[in-house]
Amino acid sequence: MLHGTTQKRGWGFWAQLAFTLLVCGFLILPALLSMLAGVTVNFFQGLSSGLTLKWVFQVFELYSDTLLLTLGVALGCLGVTLLIGVPAAYVLTVRQSWLTRLIEEVVTLPVAIPGLAIALALLLTYGGFGEFRRSWGFILVGHVLYTLPFMLRAVMAVLASIDIRTLEEGAASLGAGFWTRFFTVVLPNARSGILAGSLMVVTLSIGEFNLTWMLHTPLTKTLPVGLADSYASMRLEVGSAFTLVFFVMIVPLLVAMQTLSRLERRARSARPLADDRAQAPAVKATAVETVR
């Protein structure tokens, strides 16, 4: 179908195409308008007022610290989820028992529980530790709780699909101890899962609002919180410029994620070659000769 059918397309095709485009337009238009507003001199006068980068610069001026903090939290979050998530995914895959299944469920809970509830629990429990409460580490903890299951799931899925236990047994039979196996067989073969999980974690951390909004202090604001702040207290154009900045940051990550999953699918659909009935030579004829 995709590769050009020779038969003439019926009216049904065009009707569906038109409908799809209409829906896409409906969804994309607000985003486009919002970004356009960010570079319009005066949104209420419309485009006739001219285009400007003034608002974008103003966003950088006012919120550059939130930008840095967001990236810092995202990278910190990535570091922690890699450090905890990858070994945990390995253990949960290799040692299947009721305990590991329970742990898996518990770790996944934050995906289902509203961010606000998690934030509230964190505040109740650790809110009293002033230094910690005021530091960006507090937000980091929330983000790790929220993103860890995504890293875990991505890595576990890959490990399960390649039968890591047998691969490890193979490596062990060749003389590799645990750490050698972990670094030469487990990690390299989990790479696609680790990469997918990493992109997911960074993207989610950058865009996280629910938790962060509860956990932040005036000095620890991340991008989405700043966005809400600017919409609430600034000109509409500044808020819109903020959206633009946000898009520029997040879209490359989303594209990378898509590309990665496509590559992954392609790699997985590559089937082994058909068996070489005739052309594979038998083990050296001389070898057979010496036996007889």
Binding site: I162, D163, N189, R191
Partner: peptide, 14 residues
């Protein structure tokens, strides 16, 4: 110091 051949071969894809 054994050599082992597995039913699924367990070759390292990486």
């Amino acid at each position: 110091e054994v050599g082992m051949v597995f039913q699924s071969y367990a070759l390292f894809p990486n």
